[in-house]
């Protein structure tokens, strides 16, 4: 349906090209800024900005579903996760000596040159004779209104025609969550828990079980800034366990 309009689309091609060039230029600027920055907080924020510009660009390419995912995952969730990871490391990255930057720079330049070399062979944007628009893609476009009657062909392809693939993706996400839970546990520690509360080292070799820990803390409530509010209560101080215990039994 995109192609039917292609004949009389010429009027707003020029503004679209300016928009695309502007978005691309912003991507390049943000990319250089990410490389040059030393403050990790700023880098994480700029990565979110980068994703958001990408999403805007995808919208201008009519790929709204991809743009939606990019905005939600790239700019939303992964920014938060990167912030969480940054809190566990450092606030600034260390300076890289110039000698060590030469090799990666050469690789990047070579890859970029190869991509630029390949660009003329790519079909033009929206070319109706390109492989994408002549093969199975067009078939989905013609067949979906009769077989699925879903206006959004992307959903029809994802959930119905390519249902096996989406099932695999769901299982991949499940496995990712499972891996995180096995390695870190829902409380961020697979079996060990350490904290420094007011200069006292507390540790426990049993993971605070994943259920809510409603134990009211008597002492540290007066100084809430010292202890993160989400920390597990310093239960092990009273009864240190010498051996790791299976997770099931709560105290």
């Amino acid at each position: 349906m995109m192609f039917a309009e292609a004949a009389h689309i010429g009027a707003h091609v020029v503004p679209m090209i300016i928009l695309d060039i502007g978005l691309m230029a912003m991507l390049v600027v943000v990319g250089f800024a990410i490389v040059r920055m030393r403050s990790l907080f700023a880098v994480v924020m700029l990565q979110g900005v980068y994703s958001l510009i990408c999403a805007a660009w995808f919208v201008s390419l009519d790929a709204v579903d991809v743009a939606f995912t990019e905005a939600a995952v790239g700019a939303g969730i992964s920014t938060v996760l990167m912030l969480g990871a940054m809190l566990l490391t450092d606030k600034t990255s260390s300076e890289v000596p110039v000698q060590r930057a030469v090799g990666p720079l050469l690789i990047v330049l070579f890859t970029g040159a190869a991509m630029l070399y390949a660009v003329p062979d790519m079909p033009a944007y929206g070319d109706k004779d390109s492989a994408v628009n002549t093969g199975v893609g067009m078939q989905y476009m013609t067949v979906t209104p009769e077989q699925i009657e879903v206006p959004n062909v992307v959903t029809a392809v994802l959930a119905s025609y390519r249902s096996y693939d989406t099932m695999g993706e769901t299982v991949v996400i499940f496995m990712a969550g499972l891996g995180v839970l096995l390695l870190l546990g829902l409380n961020g520690n697979a079996g060990r828990w350490t904290a420094q509360v007011q200069g006292v080292n507390l540790s426990c070799d049993r993971a605070p079980a994943a259920e809510v820990l409603p134990t009211p803390r008597a002492k540290p409530k007066t100084t809430p800034d010292e202890v993160r509010p989400d920390a597990a209560p310093p239960k092990p101080k009273s009864k240190p366990k010498p051996k790791p215990k299976p997770r099931g039994g709560t105290s």
Binding site: G84, L88, V180, L186, G188, A231
Partner: peptide, 16 residues
């Protein structure tokens, strides 16, 4: 749930 799980896992770690 997996997104929240990853957030819980990383967010609950005690930063030094």
């Amino acid at each position: 749930t997996v997104m929240v799980a990853i957030f819980y896992a990383f967010g609950s770690r005690q930063p030094q």
